[in-house]
Computed example of a mutant assay.
Amino acid sequence: MTIASILGAIVIGAIVGALGRLVLPGRQPIGWFLTIAVGIVAALIGTAIAQSLGVATTDGIDWIELVMQIVLAAVGVGLVAGLRRSRSRV
C-alpha cells in the first residue's frame, strides 16, 4: 500500500461514514474517529460485495457500489451507537 492509497481510504471512509451517519435518524453517541473507522470498513466490505456481485466498474462514480457502502456504514454506525448506549446504561 502506498501513502496515496492509505490517504484515499481515509478520505473515502470519512465520506462514507459521514453519509451513513446522516442516513440514520437522531443523534449517535460516537465520535468522528469511530465514524471514519466504520466508514473505512464499510467501504472495503461494500467494494468486496460489489465485486463479488459483478457490479461493473465504470469510469465515473459507481453508484451501486456507493449505495452499498453507505448502507453498510449506516448499519455499522447504528450497531456501534447501540453498543455505546448499552454500555453507558450499565
Score class of each variant (00 low, 15 high):
residue 90 V to W: 07
residue 68 M to Y: 01
residue 80 V to S: 03
residue 69 Q to W: 02
residue 36 I to L: 07
residue 13 G to Y: 02
residue 12 I to V: 14
residue 11 V to R: 06
residue 35 T to M: 03
residue 46 G to P: 11
residue 89 R to F: 02
residue 86 S to D: 15
residue 58 T to S: 15
residue 63 W to V: 14
residue 46 G to Q: 10
residue 66 L to S: 13
residue 66 L to K: 03
residue 21 R to W: 04
residue 87 R to M: 15
residue 57 T to A: 15
residue 79 L to D: 02
residue 49 I to S: 01
residue 60 G to H: 02
residue 63 W to F: 09
residue 43 A to Q: 09
residue 4 A to F: 05
residue 81 A to V: 13
residue 54 G to F: 11
residue 29 P to K: 09
residue 34 L to K: 00
residue 47 T to P: 09
residue 9 A to P: 10
residue 55 V to S: 12
residue 61 I to Y: 02
residue 68 M to F: 04
residue 70 I to V: 04
residue 15 I to A: 14
residue 61 I to H: 12
residue 65 E to H: 12
residue 89 R to P: 11
residue 4 A to L: 10
residue 57 T to M: 04
residue 41 V to H: 09
residue 16 V to N: 15
residue 48 A to R: 05
residue 71 V to E: 00
residue 30 I to L: 05
residue 43 A to M: 14
residue 31 G to C: 10
residue 33 F to N: 12
residue 90 V to C: 11
residue 76 G to D: 14
residue 88 S to H: 03
residue 2 T to I: 07
residue 6 I to C: 09
residue 6 I to M: 11
residue 39 G to W: 04
residue 33 F to K: 03
residue 30 I to W: 01
residue 73 A to C: 05
residue 62 D to E: 13
residue 18 A to C: 07
residue 81 A to I: 05
residue 21 R to L: 04
residue 50 A to W: 00
residue 89 R to Y: 01
residue 13 G to A: 10
residue 60 G to V: 13
residue 70 I to K: 00
residue 14 A to S: 11
residue 27 R to I: 12
residue 58 T to H: 11
residue 31 G to M: 01
residue 60 G to F: 08
residue 46 G to V: 11
residue 54 G to D: 14
residue 71 V to C: 06
residue 46 G to Y: 02
residue 67 V to D: 00
residue 53 L to T: 08
residue 52 S to V: 12
residue 9 A to E: 02
residue 67 V to N: 00
residue 68 M to G: 10
residue 13 G to W: 01
residue 67 V to P: 01
residue 42 A to M: 14
residue 34 L to V: 09
residue 60 G to N: 05
residue 74 A to G: 03
residue 25 P to C: 11
residue 73 A to S: 04
residue 20 G to F: 01
residue 80 V to T: 10
residue 54 G to V: 10
residue 45 I to W: 11
residue 73 A to H: 03
residue 42 A to G: 10
residue 47 T to F: 05
residue 41 V to G: 09
residue 20 G to Q: 06
residue 54 G to A: 06
residue 18 A to F: 12
residue 5 S to D: 09
residue 25 P to W: 07
residue 13 G to H: 04
residue 74 A to P: 12
residue 15 I to E: 01
residue 89 R to T: 15
residue 80 V to W: 05
residue 55 V to N: 13
residue 84 R to F: 11
residue 33 F to V: 15
residue 62 D to I: 14
residue 81 A to F: 01
residue 1 M to C: 05
residue 35 T to G: 04
residue 8 G to E: 07
residue 61 I to T: 07
residue 81 A to C: 06
residue 77 V to D: 00
residue 74 A to W: 00
residue 22 L to G: 03
residue 55 V to F: 12
residue 60 G to A: 12
residue 74 A to R: 11
residue 23 V to E: 02
residue 73 A to M: 01
residue 6 I to L: 09
residue 12 I to K: 09
residue 64 I to F: 04
residue 10 I to D: 11
residue 89 R to K: 00
residue 82 G to W: 05
residue 8 G to Y: 00
residue 14 A to W: 08
residue 6 I to T: 13
residue 34 L to G: 06
residue 89 R to L: 12
residue 73 A to P: 05
residue 67 V to C: 02
residue 87 R to D: 12
residue 19 L to A: 13
residue 79 L to H: 05
residue 75 V to H: 00
residue 80 V to N: 06
residue 53 L to F: 04
residue 5 S to Y: 06
residue 12 I to P: 00
residue 3 I to W: 14
residue 59 D to S: 11
residue 23 V to A: 08
residue 70 I to D: 03
residue 49 I to H: 08
residue 62 D to H: 07
residue 55 V to M: 06
residue 63 W to L: 15
residue 69 Q to K: 13
